[in-house]
């Protein structure tokens, strides 16, 4: 019972030279762990990958009956018109919605708190989230474009300028979506309520942002409300990639507004980052 005669703590001591693994290495380790976990949650995988494709099929079929097309003159086929919106909505799902729900659940199950007690740096955790989110987004978008091209005869752009636009809209879209997802994850009171709180936000945004309808056909007030949120800008940016130049006339402003798109997405990125850093919690709300 005495504490005075303990043997030397040889096995507990580690060499003084041992160094902590770098945040980058742990970020990569977490990325691979998160990807593995994501692909095992079958319902989430099916939802994230199939949803944009199914929605494209439904809306292109319904609106495109009897060869109907969007816009004046020759117009564009509905599948072509909806594809960019579906790309944007897919990014919203796998960045914003997926992160907001998964982080809430991890917090609720105490997994975040458990991580906080380890020497894993916070940056590694977020690197892992962003890394796995990027992988899902890329796979999901590639699938969607492939299905669009093969089954719905959507023509994909062949000039590098359009793919450059695609790249920066995709990067800013996934980035701002992820950061807003992290910030939003603190809002649901529990992991169980997370889906119920997050999904309606995503659905409403999809309907008002011109994902399922021709954006120009929406009421002006709805267009203005949508302009406050990033999905409308992401969808519009993607339309500028996949639609012919003449289709810019279908936009309420009559142009693709690349400057405004970049500005809004960057603003969400910065504001989301500031809010997220200030409000992020490793513990449950009822845990002090």
């Amino acid at each position: 019972m005495s504490t005075a005669t303990r043997p030397a703590a040889a096995t507990t001591r580690r060499p003084a030279t041992a160094t902590l693994p770098s945040a980058l290495r742990l970020g990569l380790a977490r990325t691979s762990l998160e990807i593995r976990e994501f692909f095992r949650e079958r319902d989430a995988v099916v939802f994230v990958f199939a949803y944009p494709i199914i929605m494209l099929a439904i809306f292109a079929t319904v609106f495109g009956q009897d060869g109907a097309r969007v816009g004046p003159g020759e117009g564009v086929p509905f599948a072509q018109y909806f594809l960019p919106g579906m790309v944007a909505t897919g990014v919203l799902l796998s960045s914003f919605q997926n992160l907001a729900i998964s982080i809430s659940v991890e917090r609720d199950e105490g997994r975040l708190k458990r991580l906080r007690a380890t020497p894993m740096p916070a940056s590694a955790y977020f690197l892992g989230k962003v890394g796995s989110m990027l992988v899902t987004c890329v796979v999901q978008t590639a699938l969607l474009l492939a299905v669009g091209a093969v089954l719905f005869d959507v023509t994909l752009p062949d000039d590098p300028g359009r793919w450059w636009t695609f790249a920066w809209v995709f990067a800013l879209g996934t980035g701002s979506g992820a950061i807003c997802g992290v910030a939003f994850s603190s809002i649901p009171r529990s992991g169980r309520s997370a889906s119920a709180v997050v999904i309606p936000v995503a659905i409403v945004l999809q309907f008002i942002s011109g994902v399922f309808f021709t954006f120009g056909d929406l009421p002006a007030w709805m267009q203005q409300v949508a302009s406050l949120f990033p999905l409308k800008w992401m969808a519009q940016g993607m339309r500028s990639v996949f639609l012919p130049d003449a289709a810019a006339a279908l936009e309420p402003s009559g142009s693709w507004q690349h400057g405004a798109t970049a500005a809004v997405l960057v603003a969400y990125l910065v504001v989301g980052l500031v809010v997220g850093v200030r409000t992020f919690r490793w513990r449950r709300r009822d845990d002090g």
Binding site: E37, E109, G110, K113
Partner: peptide, 12 residues
């Protein structure tokens, strides 16, 4: 640290 309130239901 071994916490009492972790209830991990992950797919790992």
């Amino acid at each position: 640290v071994v916490l009492q309130d972790v209830d991990d239901h992950a797919e790992l």
